[in-house]
Write a protein that binds this DNA or RNA. Structure first.
Lengths: 191, 191
DNA sequence: CCGTGTATAGTCGCTTCCGACTAATAGGGA
DNA sequence: TCCCTATTAGTCGGAAGCGACTATACACGG
């Protein structure tokens, strides 16, 4: 019964949506996309349906009706349960309180930065810096658009966080490029 | 033959190790742990062996001998191939150059911060801030220990990056707590 | 009014990932 | 010396994740 605890944060997103109103899986995905939440949650068709099933297995959501329109495939509409509402808040609280180990690809790569040699490393970091700048701009304009359209800040607060962290990444990247170039980051090995 | 491209960064770490000298899987894992690289790479026994197999399937590494000591299980020792060396650098370069979308748990949680209500949100963020501070301290001391022991900075450069980003996270967290508390981050909904 | 592209809705099989389990040896204290 | 624990080394089954594929409906230009 009590299958393995759900870790996938997509489940959090789906649960959060169902607290608003009952929906069928496809609608959950398109609603998230509409609200640009697909930058915060990885949405893939397969995983979507698996996750919905997992949530139902755990009793956090339940099917309320299956609608058939014309000859289209049946849509199963789900709603949250009382347990689901409680667990949503508990999980949310825990995710905020306790930082968990994650393993970003960039950290992995930086661990072996030495292998690129100083010139190529600086070069690659420079390209990254350009991309980061674009990302920051994109996040900022998205932020201005939504708040400009009357949306409360809180609805896009994660974008503020992302932009802030991206700025720090850019900052480190630029500093490191400079240090490589001026020799203050010595390069051991035969390069 | 050419199975799906490897994404798991553990493969990058293993490949990097094999560039130094041939090893058997268990040795790769313990070497990484010894060098504290297990904060940058997620090492789980199961995945370790699967990943080694995947690398071999791709022809990036190959078994060079199988040693049997006493009655212990056979150890298969692997070495990198020429293709492996090339792909290692190519992959590394790409990981540095292009930021890819990742979905940290915290971003997911912050997306629904509103659901906690202002008091509980501020409270949870405060606990996070404490944890982040500890993490920063831990990273810093680890950094000082290794460089103090004569290790070149470049060997722990990823820790510098991690510490820098953690500081930005802490910064945002504190600022947001303050904004919640002084009302400059308005809270819509019935809380 | 016919074809073509796009939005709607979901299924399925394959790969990857994980962690519990097995099993032998080395080391150290009673 | 004998037992207990830690370390070394790896296997295996099941769960989760992914993306290619299926299939209908609808809008719209020619």
């Amino acid at each position: 019964m009590a299958t393995r605890k759900i870790r996938n944060t997509l489940a959090l997103a789906l649960l959060g949506l169902l607290l608003e109103k009952p929906m069928h899986p496809y609608e959950m995905a398109s609603t998230l996309r509409e609200r640009s939440k697909d930058t915060s949650f990885k949405i893939t068709t397969g995983t979507l349906y698996d996750t919905v099933e997992a949530l139902a297995r755990h009793g956090w959501i339940e099917p309320v009706e299956t609608v058939r329109e014309g000859n289209r495939p049946e849509r199963t509409v789900y709603a949250h349960t009382e347990l689901g509402r409680e667990e949503f808040v508990r999980w949310l609280d825990e995710l905020i309180r306790e930082p968990v180990a994650e393993y970003p690809k960039f950290v992995a790569a930086v661990s072996y930065l030495g292998a690129l040699g100083p010139e190529r490393a600086a070069d690659a970091l420079e390209e990254r810096a350009r991309h980061l700048t674009e990302r920051i701009d994109g996040t900022d304009t998205a932020l201005h658009e939504t708040t400009g359209a009357g949306m409360p800040r809180l609805f896009m607060i994660e974008a503020e966080y992302i932009a802030h962290v991206l700025r720090a990444e850019l900052d480190w990247t630029r500093r490191t490029i400079a240090e490589i170039r001026d020799g203050s980051l010595p390069w051991p090995g035969n390069h």
